[in-house]
């Protein structure tokens, strides 16, 4: 009784779980492929996931997904809402640990390290795999403190000037420096939505992660702010590996090198972004791209 209650509570906040409860509800006329279509694997991957299954309590949110993410690559995860793409992303730096009823099976490798190895340190992992969330969530501190938070935690700077340098570099990389350099001591919550999101990106790259996960970073922003962030992602891709969940196919087409299409917890098709958008192989992918559901 109690778990059922919890499950509904979780389902209310996590779309993937909500969908997983009633997978039959969606149009089932088009069969799923036996295996992921296209090229889910690549040489020299930064991260590689194999046979991933994720459960919320008794219901399954992700079915047997295998995927590689190459170095300095931007991969877009697209699909209708509740298809498990955000869940998958959150598994990649173990943010799903904070949800009690979430169970993850399968292997996640970050280069040579198994992410779900009990011996692996979550703190260290999250320093290497950063995350930017759907809604900008700056801490209620000054802009400077927001960016300095991570480096301070991990002891990345010993001197004040080193910290200043990290903050400035991160803000520059996030394209925010010129806008905020005169008011670093003002609260981060006072910025506009787009600026806040770039502040969050600056905050996560301040600890020099290897991978940056972005969970629909632009869904709460207006088109101009979105354009700025997309530009930023493009610049960042030279230094970082980026996985971005997005709802907008145009965005996926604009920023990513590869695109993975999820449908109801299954990875249907992965390919070069161009290929996916110009010549989708599977009927579901095509249906989604042409806008028949979403």
């Amino acid at each position: 009784m109690e778990t059922a209650q919890n499950l509904t509570d979780t389902a209310r906040t996590i779309p993937a779980a909500r969908m997983a409860q009633e997978p039959e509800a969606m149009n089932q006329k088009i069969p799923y492929p036996e295996q992921t279509i296209g090229k889910p694997l690549c040489d020299d991957p930064k991260m590689s996931m194999r046979n991933v299954n994720v459960f919320y309590g008794d219901s399954q949110a992700i079915y047997d997904v295998s995927l590689d993410i190459g170095k300095n690559q931007v991969i877009a995860l697209i699909g209708p809402s509740g298809c498990g793409k955000s869940t998958f992303l959150r598994c990649m730096n173990r943010m799903n640990d904070t949800i009690d009823i979430c169970k993850v099976k399968g292997s996640f490798m970050l280069e040579q390290d198994n992410i779900y190895d009990p011996k692996l340190d979550v703190v260290e992992l999250r320093a290497r795999v950063g995350m930017v969330f759907q809604k900008p969530n700056p801490f209620p501190k000054s802009i400077y403190e927001n960016v300095a938070y991570g480096p301070r935690l991990h002891g990345l700077a010993n001197k004040k000037f080193e910290l200043d340098e990290i903050v400035e570099n991160s803000l520059r990389k996030a394209g925010l420096w010129d806008e905020v350099k005169d008011r670093l001591d003002q609260p981060g919550t006072g910025l506009s939505g787009g600026q806040q999101q770039r502040l969050c990106i600056a905050r996560s790259i301040a600890v020099s992660p290897e991978v940056v996960l972005m969970d629909e970073p632009c869904s709460a922003l207006d088109p101009i702010a979105t354009a700025k962030i997309e530009e930023l992602i493009d610049e960042l891709s030279s230094q970082y590996t980026i996985a971005i969940v997005t709802h907008s196919m145009q965005q996926a087409a604009r920023v990513s090198h590869r695109t993975a299409y999820f449908h109801l917890g299954r990875l249907i098709e992965v390919n070069d972004t161009n290929t996916v958008f110009t010549a989708p192989e599977h009927a579901l992918t095509e249906a989604y791209i042409t806008g028949r559901f979403g």
Partner: peptide, 15 residues
């Protein structure tokens, strides 16, 4: 990049 990892590892015990 491994620089960061090193630094993080060093701080872990105390944290």
């Amino acid at each position: 990049m491994s620089n960061t990892t090193e630094q993080v590892r060093k701080s872990l015990k105390a944290r």
